[in-house]
């Protein structure tokens, strides 16, 4: 069994990111889209930690950065869910296709 190299992490991260992106682009449910965004953020976190580990193992830059990302993501989810609930109260729907008021 070959050792797990940087490439493996990067490929995993790319796959996760792509799945997340696909979800963001195709899901109709706003909550699902939020979950997919979480996926993308975590793909980034994997990247950050992996690069940090393999390229500059001495400093914990990547790890610290990923903690920041997690914090921001938590906040973002909080706000995002709050918005979705507000919209839901208004429209009785969480379907993104119904949220087209930003149109001219």
């Amino acid at each position: 069994m070959p050792a797990i190299s940087l490439t493996h992490y990067v490929v995993l991260s790319a796959l996760l990111f792509s799945i997340g992106l696909f979800g963001v682009l195709t899901k109709r449910n706003a909550v699902a889209v939020l979950i997919c965004i979480e996926l993308m953020l975590n793909a980034v976190n994997i990247n950050l930690v992996a690069f940090s580990k393999y390229i500059t193992p001495a400093d914990f830059v990547g790890q610290i950065f990923s903690i920041f990302v997690i914090t921001v993501a938590a906040a973002e989810v909080g706000v995002g869910l709050a918005i979705i609930i507000a919209i839901y109260r208004n429209r009785l729907s969480v379907n993104l296709d119904d949220f087209d008021w930003l149109k001219w």
Binding site: T26, L96, L102
Partner: peptide, 16 residues
């Protein structure tokens, strides 16, 4: 105007 559909996912796609 055609491009401003109001659909977030379109925007995300274009952004990506």
């Amino acid at each position: 105007r055609v491009f401003q559909s109001g659909r977030l996912q379109n925007y995300v796609l274009v952004f990506f």
